[in-house]
Amino acid sequence: MNFQIKTPSRYVFEVINALLLLAFGIICLLPVWHVIMSSFSDPTCLAKHSGVVLWPLSDGPEHPITYYGYKSVFGNNSLLMGYANTIFYCAVGGCISTILCTMGGFVLSRRGMMLKKYVMLMLTITMFFNGGLIPTYLVIKELHMLDTRWVMVIPGAVNVMSLVIIRTAIQGLPDSLEESARLDGAGNLVILFRIVIPLAKATVAVLALQYVLFKWNSYYDALIYLRDRDLYPLQMILREILTQQDQTSVDYDAELAMYEDLIEYCTIVVAILPIFCFYPFILKYFTKGMMVGSLKG
């Protein structure tokens, strides 16, 4: 908008606007920064300190940062196990879900199938209504899927929203490509693998990424369906470490509490690190995903 002449009041507005945005940015960053810096701090200093930790606290220049908390976190087998489980759930679940949604989206984008509208109806109803927690739980129980790895990757695999988005993307592809392939004698499967998937792969990738992030961050399914700690995903282990201390107790062993705090900070850092490493690279796909999701299905 550089065709406009700036008035003095515009300058004032711009400065105030920038300051407010800056303040919001700092508010977004500060809690995370505090946690990261605290995780490298000396636990005794940390207990004495009040206010935001902007830089690792230490008792002298000879020990600028401590790794004590991290040693203990990486020595924690259940945390590592949780990591491995989560990676498994994300990978396997992501594959199953992506394959099913792509298949479904492809079939429902075809013309001339008699039963298509009934399948579509079946899909739509699930978006409006569901059985609820307990009936779903009992079905899973009857299928003997409680406390298995499968319960984490199978039940949510058909995501109706993603399926519809993929269908819309496929419908947007030019018909001529498919027609010429048909003339060359290509069947549905050939069209799916040689034409549709290469052309719609950006949409599919975005949705797969969304699935993985959702799976990585969610704990609720595991809370309901898993009892066996060896199968717990990372978030369930984090839940134990971060949220299950006795919140009501007033007075307890101060020394122990000190180390517990440090370990909690370190655990948070270890938990969010992988996502933050990938974050700059995947961000644009997520912005794209928001757009894709907002299109008419």
Binding site: V32, L213, Y219, Q235, T243, I268
Partner: peptide
Amino acid sequence: FISTVVICG
């Protein structure tokens, strides 16, 4: 991008 559990922590 931070999970609910970590936010609550």
